[in-house]
């Protein structure tokens, strides 16, 4: 049924903005899934190893659906793997928030992954996805609406997981509070990108396919604020910082992520796995 819907949309002329918008959503899920998967086997407690792997798996699943759909609409024969493995950083459209290393924004290798950074990022991103999927469930792109409806159920669980741990950290020990607050302070500026409506979003919103980022802000903020209140964490002062990953201009961290993710596939172009 979902495939039939895809075909129906594809028969209409698809705008480049529509494809770009799907890549934003799919790439964001893919890149965050990739980051979370890095934790597998290294989590702070076995239950969390399992939970984080499960969340990563859901993100990869969302990415597969969204990239497949984008590839179908594009009509150039690119499947999910062509899109994931054979595009360079400039062609990736994920929001910058997702590509930041698990260790935090500091550059350089050798930092240890920080569970507070990982959890707080998931809180901020999943609170955004919560708003996003609710809006996209009404999308004129029936395939996207179906993906949004499916993903909303997963996101509800991811948000609960991230909220529970943010509260534990904020209201746990002085050390955990400090880490969670530091993570929040580092991450919050990157959320500006989520709500910065641009030309792509204007086009897809006008077509009833997507949503303007700015429209998601109020709902997101009240969700996040409620968790921060319960965590005794302080919302950082708003900043004018703008990251631009969704337009293809990424952070310095992005290339390293792609080089690792794409290494085997690119050593064997054209191979089937």
């Amino acid at each position: 049924m979902v495939a039939a819907m895809a075909t129906r949309v594809a028969t209409k002329t698809t705008s480049p903005e529509h494809i770009d918008y799907l890549l934003r959503l799919g790439d964001s899920s893919l890149v965050l899934g990739q980051r979370l998967a890095e934790w597998t086997g290294h989590g702070p407690v076995l239950e969390e190893d399992i939970a984080m792997a499960n969340i990563a798996l859901d993100f990869i699943g969302q990415a597969r659906l969204l990239l497949t759909h984008a590839g179908n609409l594009e009509g150039k024969g690119r499947n999910e793997d062509a899109l994931a493995y054979f595009r360079d950083a400039r062609a990736f459209r994920n929001v910058t928030l997702c590509e930041l290393p698990n260790s935090g924004i500091a550059k350089g290798h050798g930092q240890s992954a920080d569970y507070a950074f990982t959890v707080v990022r998931n809180l901020l991103f999943c609170a955004w996805q919560t708003q996003l999927w609710a809006a996209l469930a009404q999308s004129a792109d029936a395939e996207l609406a179906a993906i949004a409806a499916k993903s909303a159920k997963e996101t509800a669980y991811h948000l609960r997981h991230a909220s529970d741990w943010t509260i534990r950290f904020g209201d746990g020990t002085p050390a955990s509070h400090e880490r969670a607050q530091a993570a929040l302070d580092q991450l919050m500026p990157y959320t500006n990108e989520l709500f910065a409506t641009d030309a792509v979003e204007e086009v897809v919103a006008a077509a009833g396919i997507g949503v303007r980022g700015a429209e998601l802000h109020a709902g997101w903020k009240s969700l996040v604020q409620a968790i921060l209140d319960e965590s005794a964490l302080k919302m950082p002062v708003a900043s004018a910082f703008q990251s631009t990953g969704k337009s293809g201009i990424h952070s310095e961290h992005m290339d390293y992520l792609l080089i690792e993710m794409q290494s085997v596939a690119r050593q064997h172009p054209g191979a089937q796995w």
């Binding site: 893919l30 990739q34 998967a37 890095e38 597998t40 086997g41 076995l46 239950e47 190893d49 399992i50 792997a53 499960n54 990563a56 798996l57 990869i60 699943g61 990415a63 597969r64 990239l67 999910e80 793997d81 994931a84 493995y85 690792e260 993710m261 290494s263 085997v264 596939a265 064997h268 191979a271 796995w273």
Partner: peptide, 25 residues
């Protein structure tokens, strides 16, 4: 996991390693 050469293989490997954690539990 981070270098699996297709998204399908990545998902399967993640699920498998997650199962191993479950077995440990």
């Amino acid at each position: 996991i981070t270098r699996a050469p297709s998204l399908k293989r990545k998902a399967i490997l993640l699920a498998k390693v997650q199962d191993e954690g479950g077995h440990g539990l």
